[in-house]
């Protein structure tokens, strides 16, 4: 996903001289290297100085530029939080804060490198928009959107590398709208980001059991497609939310809130990271499982 982000950004930067990227000491691999070589004035590496990364991006935007601030998710959002809030959101500037390697993807680096509550943190700030693409192709669409919109700040929550194609043949991506990757009528799985891969496995298993399953990429977490969620709740017998995020402030509680508001009658199950720090190491799947997120457990729970 990070490579497709870099490629999409490079393409946009070729077209628009106002696009800048302010990075905090990331390795300039792939197209990021092309960007830095071809547009050195617009590739700004602040080093290990994330507060300044956000402040400089704000200053660029205040003069009409379209900057991206880019580093590992914990350091792009948590470390410079007040700058994100005051400089970007309060001033409502069209800056994209890219959180790379979100969730528990950095599965051997420990809790300091996990981003379990970023949707809640970013989503609580007025003016902030949030996009979390589910695969490289969706990342490209999201990056193009971020590079061309002037509405305000966006937190772009990315994975890392090696995410499979989840959206081939899906309906077109549209900011702020649910995207059905497949359509069914019995069960609807709402998800976003890298864990969409696991959600697809679960959808396959449920389909093998004879159920008609919808799989939805809720890529835009803010503004959330409330009407789309309502439609999903009304048109399916069972709705399952799967997200790589803490129980508070993410897609799961918002879906429950909407379900309450409309007095939904469908069954609703939610699966999230736990509200705790874990001290496990291993693969990404190992850490998700340690948080209770595995196809086996989810399938058992939704049966």
């Amino acid at each position: 996903m990070r490579n497709t982000f870099s490629e999409a950004l490079y393409d946009e930067a070729k077209k628009n001289p106002d696009i800048y990227i302010v990075v905090a000491d990331i390795s300039p691999a792939g197209s990021m290297a092309k960007f830095s070589t071809e547009y050195p004035e617009r590739f700004i590496n602040v080093g290990v100085a994330e507060q300044s990364m956000i402040g400089i991006a704000a200053g660029l935007a205040l003069r009409g530029c379209q900057p991206f601030a880019y580093t590992i998710a914990t350091f792009s959002l948590y470390r410079p939080f007040e700058m994100v809030r005051d400089d970007l959101c309060y001033q409502n500037l069209p800056v994209t804060v890219v959180g790379m390697g979100s969730g528990v993807i950095y599965s051997t680096l420990g809790g300091t490198h996990h981003t379990q509550e970023d949707i809640a943190v970013a989503g609580a700030i007025p003016n902030m928009q949030i996009i979390a693409p589910c695969d490289p192709a969706e990342c490209t669409e999201a990056t193009r959107h971020c590079a061309t919109q002037k509405v305000g700040p966006i937190y772009l929550r990315l994975g890392k590398a090696g995410e499979p194609d989840m959206t081939k043949g899906a309906e077109p991506w549209k900011f702020g709208k649910l995207r059905y990757l497949r359509r069914g009528s019995d069960v609807c799985i709402l998800t976003y980001g890298v864990i969409t891969k696991m959600a697809a496995q679960i959808a396959d298993s449920l389909a093998a059991q004879g159920k008609s399953v919808s799989l939805v990429s809720c890529h835009t977490l803010k503004p959330l497609d409330r009407e789309g969620i309502i439609e999903a709740l009304k048109t399916h017998k069972q709705v399952i939310v799967i997200e790589e995020h803490a129980p508070q402030g993410g897609l799961a509680p918002q879906t429950k809130q909407i379900a309450w508001d409309i007095k939904a009658t469908c069954r609703l199950d939610t699966f999230t990271l736990q509200d705790k720090f874990i001290h496990n190491y291993g693969s990404h799947d190992d850490l998700l499982a340690a948080h209770g997120l595995s196809p086996q457990r989810i399938l058992a729970a939704v049966a």
Binding site: R42, S52, I54, G55, I56, G59, L60, C65, P67, D87
Partner: peptide, 12 residues
């Protein structure tokens, strides 16, 4: 930091 960003934008 914002001043530095503004200065860079103007230079650019």
């Amino acid at each position: 930091s914002m001043a530095v960003g503004m200065a860079l934008a103007e230079r650019g």
